[in-house]
Each structure stands twice: as structure tokens, then as C-alpha cells.
Design a protein around this nucleic acid. Structure first.
Lengths: 331, 331
DNA sequence: GTGAAAGCGCTAACAT
DNA sequence: ATGTTAGCGCTTTCAC
């Protein structure tokens, strides 16, 4: 089943195993001619270094895990794509874990992987802070869409982004906004809410929050009905999926968007541009988020050891205006 | 950096290392009391078996790789989700590789992973047949959306599915159809085209093919223009992404759908329900495809060894009717 | 520059 | 039921 080993190569090439090993891991500590012969023989035999044997000794696996809380959310595709690309560029293997919004599954999976990977990218982790710190004590960790003192993280700038959302709504004459909150243990949900509160206060609007809602299309009806019941003129949904569900429910109930109600989402997923009306949403370059997170992780996992200072990267957002927001209806 | 080993546990528990090993890998070959003590000590020390040491010896890694040709295509996400779920259920680790439609990248990545994984799920592989056979000689392989004699595979039933598409179009009065072909080295593209040909012949229609097109929204304009130029009344696009791009371009050129042209896609991605008009498309339960493929792979990778018969699973499709198809315009 | 030999953490005979 | 021991494939001192 498994192929030739350094022993086979060493024998064929008439050298010692250590020489073969060096030829592969430290080419310039081996004589040029020897090296060539070793490579030639290795190629001929189809030799490939066994990563496990290597990992066993070095403790480094050239593998990192990325944990996402809901793989079906299109928003994560871009994150994953960016991270995968970056990992591949450094010849790192990417292990993907979907934890379906469950902190328990997340914890179990992470613990299972601790001995097998060099580090973790945790996207929208649902784990409590103390668990996150525990993991960080075991392996380098980079957080996406979550911040924690002493841990590296990459997030979009929601303070600035939410301000833009609020200013946009204010400029359309809205005086009040209803936030359809995301999951209770979502750091993003808390962050968006407080950013919205701050921005509404600044702009002399009021903000209310209902929820929490699981941020999926299927939760749209409940969220829409709640918003309508609250007499909202402008709703800001936790993400585009929820917003799209809201849009569908409003249409179904004969509520016009944006004439009667304006709707804003977050993430700018592909579908936001396709629904009717198009969804105004706060986007960002998610692939970059994934890429940067992986970059930080690879730095941290590098043999050089990790710096004391854990970087916290904040990337810009962009408010994408589409048809779902418009002037408030006359009172 | 790395934690306690079986030696530490053995010493603390006052037993031999082999006993600790057995307690973990074969619990019922160890006395109940001993086992309990071993577990207690292990828990206390925070011992976790090192998967690499285990893999080095057994040759089995409890890890499988899934290779997809374009991670940004939402269609693959369901596949990945199903496969990931199934792998997790058996405590297998899933390595994800995105090869961005490049056979070269695909080959390199697969070869890099051969020594590190127990098998491969190759989704919509762009590799030539002979390379696929080579890989299958190295590790168990299950193909998705591709068939090859002697290799295990899971595909949707496109013969039947394309017949439904054609019958639907025929029932609307269309006499001719234009297929916007997928990539040249895509097995699916070839399969869909021949299934469409067969079905059109059966139903007395004609079929033409233009392309190939990279199946992305961005290729929509080129595909739409080509179809219009060919005087199509009904276009069948290689996938929903391409179809959505076509829809956008047609709208932009003032061509009405479905009054002037009917459009059909494949995959029934989430967005197909959101665009205007909704996209008629041939769907299937993609998560099941991923799940079944992983199941086959885990069976093949099981210590029992693989059966000589390589299973070929064909799952049913479902034609989802939406607004993008309608009666042919009067000539 | 190259070889000999000692492990990395674990499992699987083989003993007892 | 449990202990002893020999490796899995590779890297890494330590010699030469």
C-alpha cells in the first residue's frame, strides 16, 4: 500500500538514510552530485516523504484547521476560499470543520484536532471566551468575526459600517430602526447591536432589537412578522440570509419594500444582488478576511515562534445600496 | 508544546504502555478496573493520542480529502456539507482542496496528499481518465459527477433528468434547443449534451450546442449573446450560475424571459429561487450526493479492504419549474 | 560532506 | 489480562 521509504532510496543511491533525509529537508547541506543522485533515484522510485513520520518527530504537521459555524451560509464560502488559497500557497493542508452553530460540536471537534494540526482559524466561533483561551493555550488561534483580548483576530469594521448604515437610513428620513438580532452567543450580533446603538444615538434616531433569530432564510417570516408588529419603518437584519427571508415574507404579506419598510442586511452575499428588490447590505471583501486570517495563523505557527503581540486586523466594509432601502413613508 | 504520552499515563497508572494503548484502541481487551484507572489518569493528565504516531504505524490516518473544482460555486457547498457531515460522524477528518478548474493544480494537490490521507472524493474532477486511474491505484477514490469504469462514483441521473427538461420544453411548444456547454474537460458537460441530444431526438426536437463556457455568472453575457445570435427560443445552460448570468444579460438587452426565450439551468442552487424570473432548473439532493460519496469512500477505506465491485450510485433528479420557462412565442 | 544510531508516540506480535 | 519489545519513516545529534 505505502510506497518506498528513504531506506529504499538510500540503498539504491548507495548513501545513508540521513543523506537522503538531508537532501530533502536541507538540500544545501549535501554535496551537489550526491544530491542529484538522490533526487534521481527518488524520482525513479516514486518516493514521497511520509508527512506523519515527519510530523511525529518535528511536532509540526503542515496542517491547519478552519472551523466555521455554518457552512451553508454563502458568506463563509469566500472566507474559506481565501483561507484555502493562502494555505495552499504555503503548502499547508486545510482541514475544514462545520459545527452547525453548536458550541458543543465545536469544542469536541477542536479538541479532537488539537494533536493533529498546527493551528486553528475559528470563524464566527460560538465558544465562550474561556474555551477560546484554552484552545489558544494549546495551539495558535486566529479568530474571524470575533475579538478577544490577547487573541489574534480579523474582523470587518462594523463600527464604521454600522454608522454608514444608520446615516444612510437617516438620510432617507427614518427616525427609528429595528435590529433583527443574530444568535445569542454570536459576537457579531452583539457587536452590530452596540454599533447600531452608538450610531443611532449619534444621529438622533432610536434603535430597538428583536430576536434572537437563527440567521437563515427560514427564520425570515418570524423576523418579518416581529418587525411589522413593532411598527418598524426600517429593519436591519443580522445577515443577508435573514434579510432575504424577511423580504420574501413581506412580499407575501403585501408589504411593499422600500415604500412601506426598508430592509438592510449584512455580508453582501451573491444572492443579495438577485432578489427583488435588490438588498442593500453592508459588505466587505470576505476572501481577504480569510486570506489575512490564514496569513496570521501561518505566521504564528511558523517555527520562529509567535510574537507576544497578537495582531488584531480590522478590514474596511462597504455599504452596497440597492432597491430595498428608500425614503420613509409619510407618517 | 506537545502533551503527555502513553508513557506518562502508564507510569502514573502503574501499568505498561501497551495496556494504555489497548485501553484506548481496544477497550474490552483490558480489565475493567485497570481501564478505569487508565482513563482516570489520562483525563487528569490531559492525555490525547497522537494521530501521527498512530498513522505512522497503522498506515491509516482517519483522514480523507475532498477535492472540488470550484469552491465558489454554491452547488459544491451542499456536496461538501453532506460529505463533511458523514466524515465527522465516523470521526474522520476532512481535508478540503479547491483546485479552481485547473487539472494541473488538481494533480499536484492530490499527489501531495496521497501519503497523508486514506482516500479521495473527487467532485467534478477535471483530470484525464488515466490520471484518475493512477490515483485510484494509490488510494481509494470516489468520483462525484463523473463516471469511469472500475471506479466508484455518485452522479445524478442526467439521462432521466435531461429527458424531463426536454419534455417540459417540448410541451411548451419549443422545437429547438441550444445548450450552453460547460468546460471542455467536464464529464458533466459531455453527459448533459449527449443526454439532451438523445432526448431531443426522442421528442422530435433539434439540439445545438455552443460554447464551451466557464460556468460562472460572468460568462453569462457571452453565452446569452451566442444563444440570441443562434436564434434560440429555449436555452439550457450548463449550470445555474451560467443561467443566471444569461438571465441578467437578456434583461439588459431587453429580451423577455420567458416570452421571447426560455431558460433552464442545472443544480437548483439557492439563488435560482431568488432571481427574476425564478429559474427553472434540474435539481437534486446534493447533500445526499456528498454523503453517499463519503460513505462509499469510508467503506472502501475500511480495514476490511475494498470489494472488487466498485459501486456506481445514480441518484434521482427533480425538475424544478419556475418562471424562466414558458410557451414558445408565435413564429 | 556523509554515516551511524538514537529516538518521536504509538501499536502489535509475542511472552507471561 | 498484562508486560516486553521491536519497529513504522523520518530527523537529528554526534562522530568521522
Amino acid at each position: 500500500m505505502s510506497g518506498p521509504t528513504i531506506y529504499d532510496v538510500a540503498r539504491e543511491a548507495g548513501v545513508a538514510t540521513s543523506t537522503v533525509s538531508r537532501a530533502f529537508s536541507n538540500p544545501n547541506r549535501v554535496g551537489a552530485t550526491t544530491r542529484e543522485r538522490v533526487f534521481a533515484v527518488a524520482a525513479e522510485l516514486g518516493y514521497r516523504p511520509n508527512p506523519h513520520a515527519r510530523a511525529l518527530l518535528s511536532g509540526r504537521h503542515h496542517t491547519v484547521a478552519m472551523v466555521v459555524s455554518d457552512i451553508t451560509n454563502p458568506h463563509y464560502f469566500e472566507l474559506i476560499r481565501g483561507a484555502e488559497q493562502r494555505a495552499k500557497a504555503s503548502e499547508y493542508t486545510l482541514v475544514l470543520v462545520n459545527v452547525e452553530e453548536s458550541p458543543r460540536v465545536e469544542w469536541d471537534q477542536v479538541q479532537r484536532l488539537v494533536p493533529a494540526v498546527d493551528g486553528f482559524v475559528l470563524a464566527a466561533s460560538r465558544l465562550p471566551d474561556e474555551n477560546l483561551r484554552q484552545v489558544a493555550g494549546q495551539r495558535p488561534v486566529v479568530l474571524i468575526s470575533r475579538e478577544l483580548p490577547d487573541l489574534a483576530s480579523v474582523v470587518l469594521d462594523h463600527v464604521e459600517g454600522c454608522r454608514r448604515v444608520v446615516e444612510h437610513l437617516a438620510s432617507l428620513g427614518h427616525r427609528d430602526l429595528v435590529y433583527l438580532a443574530g444568535p445569542r452567543n454570536s459576537w457579531m450580533a452583539a457587536t452590530r447591536w452596540s454599533a447600531l446603538q452608538a450610531a443611532t444615538e449619534e444621529n438622533g434616531l432610536t434603535a430597538r432589537r428583536i430576536g434572537p433569530f437563527t440567521p437563515k432564510v427560514a427564520q425570515g417570516p418570524a423576523a418579518a412578522d416581529g418587525a411589522l408588529n413593532a411598527g418598524a419603518t426600517a429593519v436591519v437584519a443580522h445577515n443577508d440570509l435573514l434579510a432575504i427571508g424577511v423580504l420574501q415574507r413581506l412580499a407575501q404579506r403585501g408589504v411593499r419594500v422600500p415604500e412601506d419598510v426598508s430592509v438592510v442586511g449584512f455580508d453582501n452575499i451573491f444572492a443579495a444582488d438577485l432578489c427583488t428588490p435588490g438588498l442593500t447590505t453592508l459588505g466587505g471583501v470576505h476572501a481577504d478576511v480569510g486570506r489575512v486570517a490564514m496569513e496570521l495563523l501561518l505566521d504564528a505557527a511558523a517555527p520562529a515562534g509567535r510574537p507576544e503581540e497578537q495582531p488584531r486586523v480590522v478590514l474596511p466594509t462597504e455599504l452596497v445600496l440597492r432597491g430595498s432601502t428608500g425614503p420613509v413613508r409619510a407618517p
